[in-house]
Design a protein around this nucleic acid. Structure first.
Lengths: 232, 232
DNA sequence: CTTGACACCGCACAGATGTTCTTGTATACT
DNA sequence: AGTATACAAGAACATCTGTGCGGTGTCAAG
């Protein structure tokens, strides 16, 4: 379908309005801006635009309309419009997707030092790590620790590496977790197995020995999601 | 001023609502979502948030509110919120900036298998990795390999890890490189030291022994820039 | 004890806003 | 001429939605 001048103007105005107000215009806003005296005419045209999928509308909701940038892009209408999203490599369906996010580096981890994930709120992280959305889910549960010393070497994690963890207190068998071992005053990264009331901790590097401990002495601080070593 | 739980919740909800609806919620929307029965209480808290400049509000306008991401970022509240604008690391002015890029995963690497970086053009990679611009420079020189088997365990690199390399034939002393060793028919990741006409290769994991080889037998395939282990 | 600030609740009101109905004009097709 | 369709206007209606005001309970200061 071909759009009328009026409809094009309406689209432009909506874009401009949203861009400068952060909320959509009302039907009457559109009317006065586009020189339409009647609300019904605006609605008429909006319905039309909605049929073309260029906008989305929510019935009976004030200002309940939004532009569909994907379709506008397809129709070649987006270029000159205000607030058009910049084209993104992986941005697909919805117009709101941001492709990466930040994860707080809550501090250092070393054997002999407990990590306080619960208390350490995300607000006072001393460093932030930018990660890619395609690789991780539920980013809000993630945090990162910088490894200090060679204490994790049996997990093939070296001094300076960054460990990304998903905060959780319980672990499934076989998962690699960050565990605090009471009696040894040590945090360590190992594969976790609960066997009766005993916990078996298997290093990632098979040339190191396994550990067997009473379950009460081991507390899980999070699941290891990723290890990143940055050398340059 | 410190925000109450309720106020934090309201902010979160607004972010989430806008993210999924493209228009802001009403006072009543916020109320029901945050367990507030009275509209006036919502208004009360919104006024408070507005005083803190965390949101902007337009009088008498339905859904006339928007989040101030700049201030939210400053307050350290933005990270975990839905639809937070990505912090623009690179630039803001022109619309062309991409904050991340893709690196080809050229194939697998295992001891005994030579890697052909020169021939393997970037066009027929079987996999692509999205990386962040802030962490790497000169992305066009980068390529990645997926490690197969435990042959790199002395470099604390495990089966399944991804190694990111910068393509270069020569290495400075001390750099971690991917090296092909003629006589052993093996690719390995080690710290590289040229000592006279001998090459010393030191594993990253100190519990493994060093190697000494004639320089002619060792050819550098690239410098190791990063090691990424994805566990979930 | 009194006072006042603070956070909260309910409710009524008015203005903001989408919807619907009726009417009118122009164009195209039969 | 007759009919269908796209486009437009205005007014009445319904409801959505922000605002204002009186009231409650708590808590610390005077």
């Amino acid at each position: 379908m071909k759009l009328s001048d009026r409809q094009r103007k309406i689209l432009d105005f909506i874009a401009e309005f949203v861009d400068s107000n952060n909320y959509p215009p009302t039907i009457r806003d559109i009317g006065t801006a586009c020189g339409i005296s009647s609300t019904s005419v605006v609605k008429y045209n909006l319905t039309k635009l909605e049929r073309e999928q260029l906008i989305k509308r929510d019935k009976d909701v004030s200002r309940g309309l939004s532009l569909d940038w994907t379709r506008l892009q397809e129709a070649g209408l987006a270029q000159h419009m205000a607030g058009a999203p910049r084209p993104d490599v992986s941005d697909t369906s919805n117009g709101s997707a941001f492709n990466f996010f930040q994860v707080p580096v809550l501090g250092h981890i070393a054997a002999g030092e407990p990590i306080q994930v619960e208390t350490a709120d995300h607000n006072n992280a001393d460093e932030w790590l930018e990660l890619n959305e395609t690789l991780y889910r539920n980013p809000s549960e993630l945090y990162a620790l910088r490894v200090q010393g060679d204490s994790m070497i049996d997990a093939s994690v070296l001094d300076g590496d960054i460990v990304i963890l998903r905060h959780q207190e319980r672990a499934e068998n076989g998962e690699m977790v960050a565990a605090w071992i009471d009696h040894q005053n040590e945090t360590t990264l190992k594969h976790f197995f609960l066997e009766g009331d005993q916990v078996r901790l298997r290093p990632a590097n098979p040339s190191y020995p396994e550990m067997f401990l009473p379950a009460a002495e081991v507390s899980v601080k999070g699941k290891v999601v990723s290890v990143i070593r940055q050398l340059e």
